[in-house]
Structures are given as C-alpha cells and as structure tokens.
C-alpha cells in the first residue's frame, strides 16, 4: 500500500516520534517495505478462526486489597530528569 507523508506524520504524532528531512524519507521507505512484507497475511484464510489473545487459560488472577509501602518519595523521584523534593517537573508550554 502507498504510505503518504500525511500517514507518516499522523503515525509519528501518535507515537510521539519525529522525523526530519532525510529521516522522514527513510522511515517512509522502511514502512512501505515492512508493510508490504506483512501484507502477506491478507492472503491467509482465517475464516471461522477466533483471534488468539491470551497465552494461558487462566482466569480470575486477582489480589487482595491489602496495602503495602514499597517505595519512598525519594526513590520515586530518584530517576526523574527534572524534579524538586516533592514533584516531577516537566517544562511548560510557553503560551503561544
């Protein structure tokens, strides 16, 4: 199928990725290639087949509503790229 620039832009936005100039051409070509590779699936007869969703037969795998404290505030924030003593921080959109 034909992969348009609009489609790339749309998918990239959904995936929060960005491709510039030459990268865009490359990813477009790659996707075209890969999608036509997976298009082979269209020729398989799957009439009457239920989609396979779960890899075991188990149901009702549930836990009790019992609290536990496993992580401190310090640990929670430890790996944050930007933070203060209490919060994660992310740059604001400057009005515009």
């Amino acid at each position: 199928m034909e992969i348009t620039n609009d489609l790339i832009e749309h998918i990239a936005h959904l995936a929060r990725l960005e491709f510039n100039g030459e990268e865009n051409e490359r990813i477009k070509a790659d996707l075209e290639n890969i999608i036509s590779f997976v298009d082979q699936l269209q020729k398989v007869d799957t009439e009457g087949l239920e989609p396979l969703v779960y890899m075991t037969e188990e149901i009702n795998v549930l836990r009790e509503d019992t609290p536990a404290v496993t992580v401190t505030q310090e640990e929670a924030l430890k790996n944050a790229p930007n933070k203060d003593s209490d919060y994660f921080k992310i740059p604001k959109v400057l009005k515009g």
């Binding site: 994660f88 921080k89 740059p91 604001k92």
Partner: peptide
C-alpha cells in the same frame, strides 16, 4: 505553582 514547569504528583 511553578511558572516554567508543570509539577506532577502520581
């Protein structure tokens, strides 16, 4: 609270 950042509490 912070003019340049959004603060996040999970």
């Amino acid at each position: 609270i912070d003019p340049f950042n959004t603060l996040i509490d999970l």
